[in-house]
Amino acid sequence: MLIDNHGRIINYMRLAVTDRCNLRCFYCMPEEGLNWLSRAELMTYEEMLHASEFLVNMGIDKIRITGGEPFVRKDIMHLLTGLSQLVGLKELTITTNGVLTAPYVAQMKALGIKSVNLSLDTLDPNRFFAITRRDEFADVMNTLDELLKHDFEVKINAVVMDGRNTQDIIPLVELTKDMPVSVRFIEEMPFNGDDHTYRGLNWDHVRILNEIQASYPTIKKVRDPAYSTSYNYQIPGHKGSIGIIAAYSRTFCGTCNRIRITPQGTLKNCLYDDGVLNIRDLMRAGLSDDEIKASLLNAFSHRVADGWEAERLRVEKTGIHESMATIGG
Rank of each mutant, 00 (worst) to 15 (best):
K74A: 13
Q213Y: 01
M29L: 15
N165F: 13
I279Y: 03
N97I: 11
E187L: 14
E322L: 11
H50K: 10
H302L: 13
P225H: 13
E211K: 11
I279M: 03
T176F: 04
G254A: 11
Q85F: 06
L111P: 06
G307T: 07
G254T: 07
C21T: 03
S182M: 14
I261C: 03
K62I: 09
D124C: 09
E311M: 15
D124F: 03
S119I: 13
N35I: 09
L120H: 03
K177Q: 14
K109P: 06
S38F: 06
I219G: 00
M141P: 11
N192D: 15
P190R: 13
S288W: 00
T66I: 14
L201G: 10
L79H: 05
K90N: 15
A310P: 00
A285W: 04
A246H: 08
F252C: 04
I259P: 11
N157P: 10
V116R: 10
F300N: 02
Y227A: 14
I131S: 03
E153T: 14
I244K: 04
N22G: 03
L277N: 05
D19K: 00
R284S: 04
F137V: 04
L209F: 07
N97Q: 07
L15E: 07
G307L: 07
L282T: 01
W308N: 14
D273S: 09
D194I: 08
K114R: 14
K293Y: 01
D19F: 01
T132M: 00
D145C: 09
Y45I: 09
M161C: 13
Y45E: 09
A158D: 06
E69W: 03
L147K: 10
R20K: 15
G7H: 13
D204Q: 08
A325I: 07
A158Y: 04
G329L: 13
M1N: 10
C253R: 00
D19V: 09
N35F: 05
I63F: 06
S84E: 09
K177F: 01
L23W: 10
F128G: 01
I65V: 15
N232Q: 11
G319Q: 08
V87W: 02
Q85V: 05
F129G: 02
V206D: 03
L120Q: 02
P225L: 11
I76F: 06
I327K: 08
L37R: 05
L118R: 08
R20T: 04
R258G: 13
I261A: 03
Y216R: 04
V17M: 07
L209S: 07
I259F: 01
G307E: 07
T326E: 14
R260Y: 09
L175F: 02
Y272D: 09
N5V: 09
E146F: 06
H78R: 04
V181H: 01
I245L: 12
Q213A: 05
S295H: 14
F54G: 07
V140I: 08
P263V: 10
L271F: 12
G254K: 11
G319R: 08
V181S: 04
A110K: 15
I212K: 00
V173N: 05
L86A: 10
P217G: 05
T262Q: 02
S182R: 12
I94V: 15
N257R: 05
L92M: 05
T326H: 12
G328S: 11
C253W: 01
S84H: 02
L2P: 00
D289W: 00
S230C: 12
S301D: 15
Q107F: 05
E91G: 08
A247E: 10
L111T: 09
I320E: 12
A138D: 09
Q85M: 10
V17F: 10
H321D: 12
T318A: 15
K268L: 12
